[in-house]
Computed example of a mutant assay.
Amino acid sequence: MTFHVPSVDISAYVGDGSPEERAAVAAAIDHACRTVGFIQIHGHGIRAEIIDGLTEAIDAFFELDLDTKKTYRTPPEINRGYSPPKSESLSLSLGVESATRMNDFFEAFNVGATAADYPDSPDLPQPDYADNVWPDVPGFEQKVQTYFGEAARVARTMTSIFADALGLEPEFFAARTGHSLDVFRMNNYALPPGTDVTLDGDLTGMGEHTDYGIVTILWADQVRGLQVLGTDGTWNDVQPEEGALLINLGDVTARLTNERWMSTLHRVKPPVIGGTIERRRSAAFFHDGDVDAVIRTLPSCIDDEHPDLYEPVTVGEHIAAKLAGSRAGVRNITAERESARVLASQR
């Protein structure tokens, strides 16, 4: 079977689409979520100049020397700031015991929604809604904040489509994302001078993982590297189409739907060309839901043939277990279903 990531034009939801046009989009998204869990979306409405501004900001920061970038590093429990190469291991977020050290060679910079962004929701816990760390790079904060706002809009558009596709009340997701744990991660896959990594066929850019929350909005350049696990256990290369964003589902949505919709496993293995790694950039907006929202399986996704697979959990509890794996090296013992898929894959 040929692996294929479906393409869907969501402009009917971005603009003033007719009920029939929106129903067709919702049906296409439902099919993609049932079969693949990754989607190429067009008609998202983010202007090219905003994306160009983002890439300029990404380049400007990652071109700084490593010592300067490390001054923007935060403790593992604070999901903000700079992550140097080999400081994380994403597969530990799934509890995969073969990942015994922090070995993912990507570097990243994280920003997110802060407590100040939700003035109507007092006493939000720290460090979940921590203040951002902004580098001293001209234009960086403005360009990143502009894209962040647009990605947040697209994420909420996607959850509106999800509600229609699942036959839920229109405000179902909105009621659980009023103070959403939204995090934006900019990634750079390239080795800074002096980095101690052996360039071989098993080099890991970003280990096997599922995303944690409701939905991820991913911009990536068209350099090879992103791979998605198919239902047959094989890893498949995925590149974004021109002008498209990639959408993938997170664990919260898999839990809600009792795995009718799957949080698809993916990884990054950029190619080694001429003894060096071909540079690759990506930027992922994670729309995770309110820290105190309780995630329970939808009754419509439970029947005699599909018993409930998950106990209720808050978004905060779920995210904390995943982050303890990826950023602090603590194996996540609550991810048995996801880790089994990794271990069964044709690696």
Rank of each mutant, 00 (worst) to 15 (best):
S7A: 15
P138V: 04
G139N: 10
Y118C: 01
L124D: 08
R47T: 13
L246Q: 05
R279H: 13
V111E: 01
G17A: 10
L323V: 08
R347P: 00
P6V: 07
V238Q: 03
E20I: 13
G194Y: 13
S98N: 11
L64H: 11
H209M: 09
T159Y: 01
H318P: 01
S89C: 15
D221Y: 05
L90H: 14
A113F: 00
P119V: 07
G53A: 11
D128R: 12
H266N: 10
T198L: 14
W235A: 08
I58A: 13
A115C: 02
V215A: 08
T264N: 12
R185L: 11
M262C: 03
Y13L: 04
E141T: 08
S7V: 14
E305D: 15
Y212M: 11
H318Y: 06
A163D: 08
P125F: 07
S98K: 14
F285H: 15
V252G: 02
A57M: 09
G205H: 07
T71P: 01
P119I: 07
T68H: 13
V133C: 10
Y13H: 10
L265C: 07
D251G: 00
T231G: 11
D288L: 11
D164N: 08
L229I: 08
H306F: 06
G53T: 09
T231M: 02
E88C: 03
P138T: 06
Q222V: 05
I39M: 07
E278F: 01
G225C: 07
S91G: 02
P19K: 06
H4D: 14
G243L: 09
G275R: 11
E305P: 00
S91H: 00
S91A: 15
I333N: 05
T35I: 00
E49P: 04
T2H: 12
L199E: 11
E141V: 03
V197M: 10
L343G: 00
I51Q: 12
R101D: 14
D9E: 06
P193N: 08
G139A: 09
F148L: 10
N132A: 09
C301P: 02
G112M: 11
Y310K: 03
G149F: 04
T231F: 00
Q346T: 12
A190H: 14
N79D: 13
V330E: 15
A324N: 14
E317I: 01
R267E: 06
A190N: 12
N132E: 10
N110R: 11
F148S: 05
F148R: 12
D9H: 06
V133I: 15
S180Q: 05
A283D: 08
F162G: 01
D52R: 14
D304Q: 13
G43E: 07
Q227P: 08
L64Q: 13
D211R: 09
V238M: 06
P193V: 10
C301S: 13
W134Q: 04
E242S: 15
D232T: 06
V223P: 00
T177M: 14
F62V: 11
K69R: 15
E49H: 15
G178L: 03
I247Y: 05
D16N: 15
S339M: 10
L226Q: 05
G274H: 08
Q346M: 06
L323I: 10
E278D: 12
G37I: 04
R255T: 06
